[in-house]
Simulated scan of single mutants.
Amino acid sequence: MKVVVLASGGTPTNILVNYLDDAGIPPVAVLIEPSQSRRALLRGRARRLGRRAVFGQALFMALVLPVLRRRGASRLSYLRKVHRLRADPLLPNRVTSIRTVNAPETRELLKKLAPDAVVLSGTRIVKPDTLLAAGAPVLNIHAGITPQFRGVHGGYWALWSGQPQDFGATVHVVDHGVDTGAVLQHVRTAPESDDSFVTYPLVQLAEALPVLVDTLTTLDRVGTLPEPVPTEGPGQQWYHPTLGQYLAGIRRGVR
């Protein structure tokens, strides 16, 4: 089976590729785009959300996130160990650098590779022309239950909203929207008391990776994806928390 990973660099992508390797589905190519600059990200958010919200997000990232990362480091290491998630850096010969997932040359490369499936990991929004160029199902693990918790940090927002039953991940087909594609499976789980904003995504990823492997195995065996799971309504798109929202979450017992 020819699987292509279309990704941004970093630990989650390393874990994904290593997991596929260990499951006997080594990607034939790992195409990695550079991360967007923080300035570009904040500028785009300001257009969508307004400067006040973005200022609050910047305060959260500057004042709270570094502390959470330091405190969560040992927990992240434990989770990787107990779930056998290898974060080993990918060898240079495994990686092909691309300008962006939506660049014309990326589309041409996808056509040349002719994959049976494409798996995303942390990319910017993939445009319809790129999805079409893939010529195969494009799959993603979303760190949240869709459509209720589209966007980012879906597990955190489920807890923040008083819906712990919707802490989990979604394996879905990627379409032109933001986490709006057909849902193949919801994976619900629960964090431990020592988990926090920085460890929730790994808890979710650990539970969803076996489902992704099962999905790819089914596609390889029978030539089609599993039937989509019925969902209702467009749900809501969530963004990074502001400092005020995070402090409100602390008062609700959400870290």
Rank of each mutant, 00 (worst) to 15 (best):
P89H: 09
T224V: 11
P137G: 06
Q148G: 11
G177L: 04
V30N: 12
L20E: 11
L205Y: 02
Q245C: 06
L59F: 05
R71A: 12
V138M: 08
T96F: 02
F149Q: 00
L63I: 05
P210R: 07
R39C: 03
T11N: 07
A29E: 14
T224H: 07
P115G: 09
P241S: 09
W157R: 04
H153K: 10
Q57G: 00
L205M: 15
P228K: 08
L247A: 15
V5D: 04
L216N: 07
K81H: 12
Q57N: 02
V138T: 13
A169R: 00
V3L: 01
S74D: 10
M1C: 02
L212F: 08
H176R: 13
P66N: 04
F60L: 01
I145G: 00
G50A: 09
V5I: 05
L68S: 07
V222D: 03
Y19I: 14
V30G: 11
R52Q: 12
K2R: 14
V4L: 02
Y239W: 15
L63Y: 03
M61V: 04
N14S: 15
A182K: 11
G154W: 05
K127L: 15
P115I: 07
P164L: 00
A103F: 06
L91P: 10
A29R: 13
R255V: 14
G168R: 03
I145N: 01
R99I: 05
K111I: 12
L159Q: 10
S37W: 07
L68T: 04
R251M: 13
P12I: 04
R52I: 10
L59M: 14
Y19D: 10
P66W: 03
S8C: 08
L16G: 13
R251E: 10
L113K: 11
A158F: 05
R255S: 11
D116K: 12
H83N: 15
P12Q: 06
L68Q: 06
T170D: 01
G9D: 14
K81A: 15
A7H: 03
L132Q: 12
V28K: 10
I15A: 09
K81C: 10
T231A: 12
L68G: 06
Y200G: 00
V173F: 01
L139G: 07
R86S: 15
Q237F: 05
A58W: 10
T242F: 03
E108D: 15
S74G: 07
I32Y: 08
N102D: 14
R48V: 13
A7S: 10
L41N: 03
E207Q: 15
A73C: 03
L110K: 13
L42K: 09
L42C: 07
L212E: 08
S35N: 13
Q245P: 09
P201C: 00
P115N: 08
A206K: 03
V101Y: 02
L63K: 04
I98C: 06
A182Y: 00
R80I: 12
L65G: 01
G155Q: 06
V4R: 00
P147S: 14
P34I: 09
S193W: 01
V95A: 09
Q204M: 15
R71E: 02
D166A: 07
G144E: 00
G235F: 01
E105D: 15
P191E: 01
P164E: 05
D129G: 08
V30C: 12
T100F: 06
N102L: 08
E207N: 10
Q237R: 14
T100K: 04
Q148R: 14
P191N: 01
V198E: 10
R255A: 12
A7P: 05
I15N: 11
S35M: 11
V5Y: 01
L41P: 01
P241A: 06
